[in-house]
């Protein structure tokens, strides 16, 4: 469970079977270490935002687990992580159909094409073919 900030150290939760973590990164480090010790028959269930779920799935696959051995359930925000196909920078927390790349500054169109490997949606420059031709900005992924 991700608790945030320093509340997680020490674990604020009394039961030993529930561990608090400062952040998703903190949890994923512990998860990878834990999976390396686990045995066949183990099952993992994760709930959270899409980016978190696919980070967990990546840790599971890296540990040798298959799709039958983990379950993912989306909850919370539908905001997207965008991979800029031009400069390869990730831009997190995107809720709109257009976003400025945090790397190269291009106006990216947010596609529905999702890469499990990169754990990100693809973004490409909206006016790459006809400079200046763009579309209105809308909030689509809250």
């Amino acid at each position: 469970m991700i608790e945030g900030h320093s509340r997680a150290i020490p674990s604020p939760l009394p039961e030993e079977t529930v561990h608090g973590f400062r952040s998703a990164s903190h949890l994923l480090i512990a998860l990878r270490r834990r999976l390396a010790q686990e045995h066949m028959g183990f099952r993992l269930y994760a709930a959270g935002t899409e980016g978190f779920l696919w980070d967990v799935a990546g840790a599971c696959e890296a540990a040798g687990m298959g799709k039958a051995e983990y379950r993912l359930c989306h909850s919370g925000s539908a905001q997207r992580r965008i991979f800029c196909v031009h400069c390869r920078t990730m831009t997190d927390g995107v809720t709109t159909n257009l976003v400025t790349c945090s790397g190269c500054g291009a106006q990216l169109f947010v596609r529905d094409h999702f890469s499990r490997r990169l754990n990100a949606f693809m973004g490409f420059q909206i006016d790459a073919e006809v400079p200046g031709e763009t579309i209105p900005v809308e909030e689509l992924y809250r």
């Binding site: 999976l35 390396a36 686990e38 045995h39 066949m40 028959g41 183990f42 540990a63 040798g64 687990m65 051995e69």
Partner: peptide, 9 residues
């Protein structure tokens, strides 16, 4: 034997 096999076996 089957209980002690690592993930990915």
């Amino acid at each position: 034997l089957l209980s002690r096999q690592p993930l990915g076996t």
